[in-house]
Design a protein around this nucleic acid. Structure first.
Length: 296
DNA sequence: ACAGGTCAAGGATAC
DNA sequence: GTATCCTTGACCTGT
């Protein structure tokens, strides 16, 4: 199964999301602030539902939600959005759509979530980010939060220890949603696999990150271990093509078919594949069309 | 209407 | 310590 993240280009206006900057928010009159946040959040959740419908219609049953649907959620605490009847209603519709259409969903907190930071206040805010994602996840029925290990400060072994300590302090409800992904600069496939094995959590393999940041072991040799971390659930990998060359960290607009083929050769249908390309869903449609063409 | 600069947040690096 | 880049998509401001 193939999928994409966040924006759905095919849907044009209904496939993207609104937000507001802090500056603009603070410039609003007191009375208008909550109104603005709610209206943006409601629009965004409405669009999420549209995207799930589109996914099902196009046999794309893998989708990652944006982390930025409730504007300024991890910064402000004026609005208990998770108790707002409108928000609950829209979240319910998303949940129903995902379940009834069998779309496998996930979320991926961004670069500001650094559980293993050396700065206590960064760890605190990272936990806040996870609490936010967890709340939203529970409302829409998401069970997967993809994270990176984070900072390398102090050297990898120390940094990994900090991660383990922070992870063990998290709520069980959050812990059981977390899966770890290898990154393109520091923590390799092998590093993350070992950590996942120790923590008994699944590992998402990012094939492009592996090319940018390889380890000594061959990927082929690590696949069975990665598969085992999922304990019977279907594993998932991330796939993208470097913009200008294979180990270019920037993502290309589409996925080169040879990159898809190589990944498919490695794991076949045993893994779901999240395609990370600038053209989002269009890149998935493109690969699906080429697969079909090659079969005919 | 359009373009260019900006944005809440972290990390790494160079000085 | 401070400045600058990384990276992303939408906002925001000036024209």
């Amino acid at each position: 199964m193939l999928g994409f993240a966040c924006i759905c280009k095919s849907l044009k206006e209904n496939g993207k999301f609104r937000t507001v900057t802090l500056k603009t928010y603070l410039g609003l009159k007191e009375d208008d602030r909550l109104k603005r946040l709610r209206s943006i959040a409601v629009d965004n959740l409405f669009n999420c539902r549209k995207i799930l419908d589109w996914c099902a219609e196009n046999q794309i049953l893998l989708y990652r939600f944006s982390s930025d649907l409730i504007p300024l959620a991890t910064y402000l605490n004026q609005w208990q959005w998770w108790e707002d009847p409108d928000i609950l209603n829209y979240c319910n519709r998303i949940k129903e759509a995902a379940v009834s259409k069998s779309v496998r969903i996930s979320m991926h907190p961004d670069q500001f979530c650094v559980l293993n930071s050396e700065k206590p206040q960064v760890v605190e805010s990272s936990i806040g980010i996870l609490v936010h994602h967890n709340r939203f996840s529970n409302l829409i029925g998401n069970e997967t939060l993809v994270l990176h290990v984070g900072s390398a400060a102090g050297g990898k072994p120390t940094a990994i220890e900090r991660f383990e300590r922070a992870f063990c302090m998290l709520d069980n409800d959050i812990q059981r949603k977390i899966v770890l992904e290898n990154d393109d600069k520091t923590f390799t496939t092998s590093d993350v696999l070992k950590l996942c094995q120790r923590l008994h959590i699944p590992m998402v393999l990012d094939v492009h990150h592996h090319v940018c940041n390889p380890c000594e072991e061959k990927l082929e040799a690590l696949i069975p271990g990665i598969l085992d971390t999922w304990q019977g659930r279907k594993p998932k990998l991330h796939l993208s093509s470097g913009k200008s060359r294979p180990n270019d960290r920037s993502h290309g607009d589409f996925i080169r078919f040879e990159d898809y083929s190589r990944a498919y050769g490695l794991v076949g249908d045993t893994f779901d594949m999240m395609l990370e390309a600038k053209e989002k869903d269009l890149a998935v449609l493109d690969i699906m069309a080429q697969i079909k063409f090659n079969q005919d």
